[in-house]
């Protein structure tokens, strides 16, 4: 016996419910490809800046100067945080979370839903921390010391972390449909 789902559920916390994306298998397929591509593209953005920094030459009018700033391990810390967060969010089994969020009376306070919520929180916090960290690196390392011409390294870092977050969003939306239709197709 369970409580029927009404449009107005008095146990809901928020006034608007979360939009549930019902996507078909086609959207699921394309979205997964797109998410993987975006993930690799954001990594290549950071790798591009890193390669550029490692092969940087001094300007041609002053060939004996040293290049003022290089990318170092500090630039990679936000990327590591974002990647860990991406892995955590993507590996999370969404069904536990959905049963936790749908207001079902029996599973909303179950231990699995509680754990899923904590893991989701940690993952999203890691990704948001990566984005914030990349902005910090951009401002503190490249903009405040006024390394004009080298801010591309910082912007690439911000773009990489934003791309990973966008990739996680696309993957989430494309995975939110049910697998039932695909199951019938393959069997």
């Amino acid at each position: 016996m369970s409580i029927p789902r009404a449009t107005y559920d008095p146990r809901r916390v928020f006034r608007f419910s979360l939009p549930s994306f019902e996507v078909g298998p086609r959207v699921r397929q394309v979205g997964t490809y797109l998410s993987g591509g975006l993930f690799a593209l954001s990594f290549f953005l950071l790798l591009d800046a890193s390669t550029l920094s490692s092969h940087a030459k001094p300007p041609p009018d002053a060939p004996y100067d040293v290049v003022p700033v290089h990318m170092s391990f500090v630039d990679w810390i936000p990327a590591i945080c974002s990647t860990l967060g991406f892995l955590v969010v993507s590996l999370l089994d969404k069904t536990h979370l959905n049963s936790a969020l749908s207001g079902d009376a029996w599973s909303s306070d179950g231990p699995a839903a509680w754990r899923a919520r904590v893991v989701l929180f940690v993952g999203v916090a890691l990704m948001a921390g990566g984005l914030a960290g990349s902005l910090t690196v951009l401002i503190l390392k490249y903009i405040v010391p006024d390394f004009t011409g080298y801010t591309y390294y910082g912007w690439a870092n911000v773009g990489m972390n934003g791309g990973i977050m966008l990739s996680a969003v696309i993957l989430w939306i494309s995975q939110s449909g049910s697998d039932e239709y695909e199951y019938q197709l393959t069997v």
């Binding site: 699921r28 997964t32 490809y33 998410s35 993987g36 290549f44 591009d48």
Partner: peptide, 25 residues
Amino acid sequence: IDFGRFLTGMLVTTGLSLPLLLAHS
């Protein structure tokens, strides 16, 4: 299957963006 698609997307994007990276630097 989704993991395989994710990896395929990654590999295709790698193949497209690796030459651009090498040419850029």
